[in-house]
Structure formats: structure tokens, C-alpha cells
Amino acid sequence: MKASPDAQRRLLDLQAVDTALAQLAHRRKSLPELAEIEAVGRELAGLDDERVRAQVTVDDLDRDISRFEKDIEQVRTRKDRDQKRLDAGGALREIEGLQHELATLNRRQGELEDAELELMEQRETAEAALTEVQGRLDAANERRAAAERRRDEALADIAKEQEFKTSSRAPLAADLPADLVGLYDKIRLESGLGAALFQSGRCGGCRIELYGADLARVKAAEPDDVVRCEECRRIMVRTKESGL
């Protein structure tokens, strides 16, 4: 293929733009915020499971405490009823029976209240654990929101740069021979780099230094010959910096 030396030199400008676009695309996929958001997401999943377990514990204790309160209220109601009957007087046997039942109910009430108090202490501890895990959950949500804001800002900056680079690429490519751009694009899509400067006897694409017949081939090529590296097949652009 033939192309003027000037066109080949401007191919490096096109490659510079494409390299910048490739770097922006890589930066877009590898933003540190993406990894942070993913990590915090995993943390949030674990914290939410922990919060659910803590809430279940509190709910279970609330249910048990409510049951004890009902039992205690039933005992109190029974005591009030027996006390009224006792105050009303009656046969000695009935009075003794009521006194015995009241004593039994007092013991039962004490046992229930002690058990309820123990459950309430457990609930206080469980509530503190729930509050603590909720605090960690809220903090993790704030970290994720902050990371998402930074991600969005970075993506917006990248999008602006991509738009600028893309808009500058079109006139560069349009001003070059179509067959040269076609060859360049084909190589670039295969290897990521379509053209590179040949300098100091070395291909700028694969960084391999040429010797003997390979170097002689490059030196013997006409200025408008499009020379490709035998190793990486990229276009080697020759300029005054090539030292030929």
C-alpha cells in the first residue's frame, strides 16, 4: 500500500486519539468507585441479614414479654376477685381456701414479674444490638451513596472527554486516505494499536528491535510505502525521528 509520508505521520495523530479513547474506556470500567460500591454492597447484604436477625430477636422478646404481661394481668384479676370475696367474709373453710389461693397467686405473680424483668433486660440488650447494627447499616449506606456520587461525577467527566476526543477523531480520519484508515482500523481492532512510530531501529508497537534483512527492508522502502512490522503486523510510521 502507498500513502504519502505526511498522511502516515498524521496516522500517529489518529492513533493518539484512539489510544486516549481506549484509555478512557478502560478508566470507565476500572473506576475505584465501582469496586468500592461492589464491596459496600456485599457489606450491606451482610449487615441487612444481621439487622433482620437482631430485629427478630427483639420481636420474639416483645412477644414473650407481652405474653407474660397478659399472664400477670390475669393473676392480678384473679387476686382482686379473691380479695373481694375474702373481704366479704364467709365460712372459715372458704376463707382459708381464699387465703391459700391468694398466697399461691402472690408467689405466681412474683415469679412472672421476675421472668418478665429478665426478659426486659434481655430486650434492652437486644435493642442495643439492633441499634448498633442499624447504625453500621446507615453508615454503609452513606458510604455507598458517596461512592455513587463520586462515580457519577467521574463518569460525567469521562463522557465529556470521550465526546471531545470522538469529535476530534472524525475530521482526522476524514482527511486521510480511506484505504490507509481502513487498514489502520482493521489492525487496531485486532490488537488495540494500529500504527506506531518506528524509532532507533525499533517498532513502536511491539518494541522489538530490527536487525539485518528486516532493518534493511525498512531502510530500502520508499517514503510513500506503508511499512508493517513483521512481528506484530502494525504500521510502522517513519519520520525524521526514525533515524533512517
Rank of each mutant, 00 (worst) to 15 (best):
D18F: 08
A91T: 13
T104K: 08
D71Q: 11
E94Y: 00
L189T: 06
A154P: 10
D185N: 06
E230K: 10
E96C: 00
G204T: 12
G205L: 13
G135D: 06
L92N: 11
R51M: 07
R108P: 04
A129L: 10
E116M: 15
E161Q: 15
D6V: 14
E96S: 06
P32Q: 05
F68V: 00
D175C: 05
L98P: 09
R85I: 07
L112G: 03
L215D: 10
I235H: 09
L105P: 07
L24D: 11
I95E: 14
D114Y: 04
D175W: 04
Q55I: 00
S167V: 09
D49G: 02
F164W: 10
E43K: 12
H100S: 15
E38D: 14
M236F: 07
I37Q: 03
Q99G: 03
K186C: 04
R238T: 08
G89N: 01
V75I: 09
V227L: 03
K186V: 04
R234D: 01
A221D: 02
D80R: 12
L86P: 03
E190R: 14
A39K: 06
L197K: 04
R143M: 05
N141H: 13
C203G: 01
R234W: 10
P32A: 11
L155P: 12
A128T: 11
A25R: 14
E231S: 13
A45G: 11
A221P: 00
P223L: 05
D71R: 03
T104E: 12
L172V: 09
D82G: 04
R107H: 14
R42Q: 05
L105F: 04
C206M: 10
A221I: 03
A196I: 03
Q109P: 01
D224N: 15
H100V: 12
A128W: 01
R42N: 09
D152E: 15
R10Q: 15
E209I: 08
Q199L: 03
D48G: 07
D80S: 14
E148L: 07
A174G: 04
A140I: 07
E222P: 01
N106H: 05
E142Q: 13
E101N: 10
A129G: 04
Q83W: 02
L172A: 11
L197R: 06
T239I: 04
L176C: 03
V226H: 02
I37T: 04
R169L: 07
Q199V: 12
T19Q: 09
D157Y: 11
R51T: 08
D64F: 00
G89M: 02
E118G: 12
A145W: 12
E132I: 11
I37W: 06
S242W: 10
A129W: 03
A139D: 13
D138K: 15
N106C: 01
G194A: 08
A147K: 09
L44H: 00
R136E: 12
A129V: 01
L47M: 00
R136C: 05
